[in-house]
């Protein structure tokens, strides 16, 4: 059923579009180009000694999936209102199926990233394996937040307005197009762990460490813990309100 819901969205997403999958290629490339111009050419930020495009694209790879799953799953209940009031099925399938849907664009972005990384930087091939557990962690974080937000937005619709803003903030405080050291240097020792409460920060740092053979902050693992805590708490909260969905939406 999870697959069926994802397939339904997948078909709907690409029906009657001119470029179809083209969008999955154009979007990250355009984003990378803009970031290249801003952060590399104008601001000349430091990227842990890794070629800027590879570095940034590795960030976008995770970020785009995270942002997609989070925004789609948070809106999933509200956009399926009529169905929720007329058909019974396990409600949690709606937000969860978006994780599956995001895999389409993720795999396209991954292929582009591999082309860029192998052409542009020193890549540790074995380190690529870390992609699997780390993307699962990102998925856990996106699902977790998505479950929280979708369940909360039944009562508080303003969350739907707050989300794009929240995502934008998160994009800038995450080390996507700059080295995490830029932020860490300015934080006192005791505050550094806080930086990894943002699951994206630690997960990205770990991935780059494995792929480009870099050092990483010993507390970066905290991000993975946060990601799974979000998932477990989101799952718990969703089940708590599940029975009231049709009455409140």
């Amino acid at each position: 059923m999870l697959y069926n819901f994802a397939y339904r969205d997948y078909r709907a997403r690409y029906a009657q579009t001119l470029l179809g999958y083209g969008w999955a290629i154009i979007q990250p490339i355009m984003a990378a180009a803009v970031l290249f111009f801003l952060f590399h050419n104008l601001l000349k930020v430091e990227t842990q000694g890794v070629a800027f495009l590879s570095f940034t694209f590795s960030g976008l790879l995770f970020w785009n999936y995270f942002a997609f799953v989070l925004s789609q799953s948070s809106a999933s209940l509200i956009s399926a209102q009529s169905m929720l009031q007329k058909i019974y099925f396990p409600r949690i399938i709606l937000p969860l199926s978006k994780g599956l849907l995001g895999l389409v664009e993720l795999s396209i972005t991954l292929v582009i990233f591999l082309f860029i990384a192998f052409a542009d930087a020193q890549v540790e091939s074995l380190g690529l394996l870390s992609f699997i557990p780390l993307i699962i962690s990102v998925l856990a974080a996106a699902w977790g937040l998505g479950l929280w937000l979708s369940a909360l937005s039944i009562r508080y619709r303003d969350l739907q307005q707050a989300l794009p803003f929240l995502l934008q903030m998160l994009f800038f405080i995450s080390p996507i197009a700059y080295s995490p050291a830029l932020v860490q240097e300015r934080l006192p020792e005791s505050m550094q762990a806080l930086y990894y409460l943002n699951p994206i920060s630690g997960i990205l740092e770990l991935f780059r460490a494995a792929l480009f053979n870099l050092e990483y902050h010993p507390q970066a693992w905290l991000s993975i813990l946060v990601a799974f805590l979000l998932f477990i708490s989101g799952w718990w909260y969703f089940h708590r309100v599940e029975r009231k969905i049709a009455d409140l939406i």
């Binding site: 059923m1 069926n4 397939y7 078909r11 709907a12 007329k86 058909i87 099925f89």
Partner: peptide, 22 residues
């Protein structure tokens, strides 16, 4: 309600499978 769960963009065949599964 007749037709909730049908997706207008999908074909009749796909909707039978989708709706049946839901």
């Amino acid at each position: 309600e007749v037709g909730t769960g049908f997706h207008p963009e999908l074909s009749g065949r796909e909707n039978i499978y989708l709706n049946g599964s839901i």
